[in-house]
């Protein structure tokens, strides 16, 4: 890990606009968002239902096209890339953790973890692999199929998979939404450790103030606009901010 004086940004969005439908039926999901996500930091995106937080994540990750504005990941502008280029970009620079259905049921935990590297045709760095496995504590579960793992274990496999390819940024969409509070806390702790110890950049969408409090910074969305930010959040400050927004 190198110590940089100036904070590098991993993901930048400028004037991000997303409109679904046309004319009267048009829904403005994002109305011109400017936001930076610092590298080697853990950022949470929060907001009430329908505020556009998932749409923002999909657009930032290149999963969805934008109506207007620009997004760049690690200095590469992704708006304007075609499907093939986007796929390759995701393969090389982006990791994902979804709320559910993160794993292929036919593969073992280890195969699932190695999947992104294999798709990219790269070799896993064995040292990194071991460290990741140690970090998420899955050593004795590697040969198991997803159906033989608990929900928390499945999410940890997903975290390991996201970490293994050392992506520029990991996008996590409600990663603890399906877990009980203990498993959820575990997964969040792993995410934070991977930022601290592995220098990983993570952007997480959540509606849970406790989950958000694990992040270094929380950005708040309402009606497709970025309305507030909180640095070094606690559950209480997050909750207070949310209450203020709902009011």
């Amino acid at each position: 890990m190198t110590t940089t004086i100036q904070v590098r940004t991993a993901v930048v969005a400028r004037g991000l606009t997303k409109v679904y439908g046309e004319g009267d039926a048009a829904v403005h999901a994002l109305r011109g968002i400017d936001v930076d996500f610092a590298a080697e930091a853990f950022t949470a995106i929060m907001g009430p239902s329908g505020s556009g937080k998932s749409t923002l994540m999909h657009c930032l990750a290149g999963l969805d096209t934008v109506t207007d504005g620009r997004v760049s990941i690690g200095g590469v502008e992704i708006t304007g890339l075609n499907d093939k280029q986007l796929t390759l970009l995701r393969r090389e620079r982006v990791g994902f953790i979804f709320q559910a259905f993160n794993l292929l049921p036919t593969l073992t935990a280890e195969q699932n973890i190695r999947l992104p590297l294999e798709i990219a045709g790269r070799q896993a760095d064995q040292e990194l692999f071991d460290r990741v496995i140690e970090t998420v504590g899955l050593r004795d579960r590697l040969k198991h199929k997803p159906s033989e793992l608990s929900g928390g274990q499945q999410q940890r496999v997903a975290v390991a998979r996201a970490l293994i390819s050392k992506p520029e940024v990991i996008f996590a969409d409600e990663p603890t939404g399906n877990l009980d509070s203990r498993s959820g806390a575990e997964v969040l702790a792993f995410l934070r450790r991977s930022v601290r110890e592995l220098g990983q950049t993570i952007v997480m969408v959540t509606h849970d103030p406790v989950a958000a409090s694990y992040a270094d910074r929380v950005v708040f969305l309402r009606d497709g606009l970025l309305v507030r930010e909180v640095e070094r959040p606690t559950p209480q400050t997050v909750l207070d901010t949310l209450m203020a927004l709902e009011a």
Binding site: K84, F98, I119
Partner: peptide, 14 residues
């Protein structure tokens, strides 16, 4: 469908 979507998200091309 969702499995395919996951694979696509992980970098499988069309």
């Amino acid at each position: 469908t969702r499995e395919s979507a996951l694979l696509r998200a992980l970098g499988l091309t069309r």
